[in-house]
Amino acid sequence: MLHIACPWCGLRAQSEFTYANDGTLIRPDLSNDSIDDHYNYVYARDPRRGIQDEMWRHSAGCGQFLKVRRDTLTHEIHATGAPQDDLDVPKDDRS
């Protein structure tokens, strides 16, 4: 069971949360008509064996989205914050 610290509700069990998406994706502006940019946003992903930023939603709690910095090899959660936060725990470059 992962324990995820919701920035608004505190430490809660994984079962209250829903994984949403890769936390580094930024939707291209609607005026951007590059197929490649939209393809990259919708379909392509960076495989990260190690620490990655993710968006989760506290779906059975406050309902807010949050950013989670988590290790995909160990499941360790290093930091959480609001979606706009820059998490201040250093990333590693394992891959």
């Binding site: 993710e54 090899l73 160990t74 499941h75």
Partner: peptide
């Protein structure tokens, strides 16, 4: 949720 660990969680 994405993971490369060859193990899952209890829930």
């Amino acid at each position: 949720y994405p993971t490369y660990a060859q193990r899952g969680n209890f829930p």
